[in-house]
Amino acid sequence: MRILLANDDGIMAEGIYTLAKELEKDHEIIIVAPDVQRSAQSHAITLGQDLIVKEVELEGLKSKSYSVSGTPADCVRVGLEVLAERQIDLVLSGINFGFNSGMDILYSGTVSAAIEGNIYKIPSIAISAEVKEGNARFDIAAKYTRQILESSMDKLVKSNIVLNINVPYRDEEDILGIKICKIGGPIYDDYFMEHSETGEKVLKLKGRKDMEAEEATDRFYLNEGYVTVTPLYYNLTNFRLLEEVKTWI
């Protein structure tokens, strides 16, 4: 299978390297990733300026790799329209340094790169790994990605779908299994304010507010020690209210 691999952590990130190393054993991989870290870019694309594309050699990988001076969505567009020499079967994005669960998927460049592939009618997967004390188990996340891919490959490549995978920071024997589930709600950022010498007010992010996870959601199962898989749907039309709103206007 021919796979386009992107991310939002940048071309030199450990997560994308680990995933490529695992998957290129059996698949044809092309890596197209931002030249620098581009987290929380959501689905932004670059307009009004040129994109710089460079071929990059990643030691230990046989796959062709390219950096792009743009967003994660830019990387997928460039990969599919310019760099891929043959039809791509699947777009993978990750492995992200940190969860992309709950409503955080709206801000995530990792998830948006997968959705960009899906806009081209290519099935896509976003993969993210929990961070603890500055570390992530990319090795475990790569193994589970491979397992999920192998078990669903036949149906996945025939579907226009996005899967969002999150993997907790645990040894393989301590992971309780895989849960197919819905996304949870938001966790709100916590800010504090400082005053600068010029009189400006400066807001700094100091963390996230601790909120209880709703049962049967990705955040709930991740806390329990499961790998979570959520199928995503990016059409934002509220079809239930479509006819009702027609009567308003």
Rank of each mutant, 00 (worst) to 15 (best):
K21F: 14
E22F: 02
E22C: 09
L23Q: 07
K25Y: 03
I29N: 03
I29K: 01
A33G: 04
D35E: 12
Q37A: 05
R38Q: 15
R38G: 01
R38Y: 07
S39Y: 07
H43Y: 13
A44K: 15
I45Y: 09
D50L: 10
L51N: 02
I52L: 10
K54C: 06
E55R: 07
L58R: 15
E59H: 10
G60I: 12
K62F: 04
K62L: 13
K62W: 06
S67N: 07
S69Y: 00
S69A: 06
G70I: 00
G70V: 00
T71Q: 04
P72I: 02
P72L: 06
A73M: 09
D74A: 04
C75Q: 03
C75A: 08
V76L: 04
E81K: 15
D89H: 12
V91N: 02
S93N: 08
G94K: 03
G94T: 07
I95N: 07
I95K: 06
F97H: 13
G98F: 09
S101Q: 14
S101M: 03
S101N: 13
G102M: 06
I105E: 05
Y107C: 14
Y107L: 13
S108T: 06
S108N: 13
A113G: 12
A114Q: 05
N118K: 12
I119Q: 07
I119D: 11
K121V: 08
S124C: 06
S124I: 02
E130D: 02
E130H: 05
E133P: 11
E133D: 14
E133C: 12
N135Y: 09
A136S: 13
R137V: 03
F138H: 05
A141I: 09
A142I: 06
A142M: 08
T145R: 00
R146G: 05
Q147R: 14
M153C: 11
D154K: 08
K155E: 09
